[in-house]
Design a protein around this nucleic acid. Structure first.
Length: 234
DNA sequence: GCGTGATCATGA
DNA sequence: TCATGATCACGC
């Protein structure tokens, strides 16, 4: 846990996926202020210096304690929690971070063992009002839904991953912009643009590179959220 | 220093 | 209006 405060209410980790889903759904309609009080903290006035606050609040409330490890939030259940801000039109306001790009693990660039595949196998999407004109503590939690990629979604994600990973393997990371990839993209992900991580450079030799992460494009998450809204679950 | 939680700020 | 590239805070 982190900047939510020293004393948290200590919600137990869920024992099963059903229990997790039930708890997550019970939050629908509640405000962030109410939930913050339950875990023993307060909503900040804005997110400018607390960009991850909403996600961390939900982790605390749902008993996710994987805390910054490169594994799903609910490791035993294999479930990754993603809190996603939704605009007035019911569409996500931002892209969704998936995981870090491992620029220094060239021996492990296999889809089957990739972090992207692990993280996206089961995702609990938790929608939260993101309307900036509404005070943070009054914003409401929306519907929670458990999602696993369909075969065609997997195919698209994997295809993007292969394309991007091929470039990394060739030492062309620095040529990758966020324009690449239909649904999965690579963008900078670090404290600032001066951050560097060791990896494979353009000449095929070790080099210092800008740290990056995999992200899901907004139009993709918009579609998957809308799709399961229309279609019956399971 | 890296990976986590993400949103911010700006130019196209 | 929108996506890209930049940035903030925290645990370990």
């Amino acid at each position: 846990m982190d900047n939510l405060g020293p004393k948290l209410a200590g919600f137990e980790p869920p024992a099963s996926i059903d229990e997790l889903l039930q708890t997550a759904r019970s939050l629908a309609g509640r405000t962030l202020g109410e939930i913050a009080e339950e875990v023993g903290t307060e909503a900040p006035l804005d997110l400018r210096r607390k960009k991850g606050w909403v996600g961390q609040l939900m982790e605390a409330r749902l008993g996710a304690y994987a805390a910054s490890k490169p594994v799903p939030d609910f490791e035993d259940l294999g479930v990754e929690l993603k809190t996603i801000s939704i605009g007035p039109a019911g569409k996500p306001l931002e892209s969704t971070y998936v995981c870090a790009v491992r620029l220094n693990e060239l021996h492990d660039l296999h889809w089957e063992t990739s972090w992207v595949r692990k993280k996206l196998t089961k995702v609990l999407w938790l929608c939260v009002e993101g309307d900036k004109s509404r005070p943070l503590h009054l914003r409401r939690v929306g519907r929670a839904m458990l999602w696993s990629p369909s075969e065609s979604q997997w195919a698209t994600i994997r295809s993007d991953w292969e394309e991007l990973t091929d470039l990394i393997r060739l030492g062309e990371v620095d040529s990758i912009t966020a324009h690449r990839g239909q649904v999965l993209q690579i963008r900078p992900k670090g404290p600032d643009s001066s951050a560097r991580v060791s990896g494979l450079g353009a000449d095929g030799h070790p080099a210092l590179l800008l740290p990056r992460g995999f992200y899901l494009r907004r139009h993709f998450t918009a579609q998957l959220l809308a799709q399961t809204f229309i279609l019956p679950r399971r």
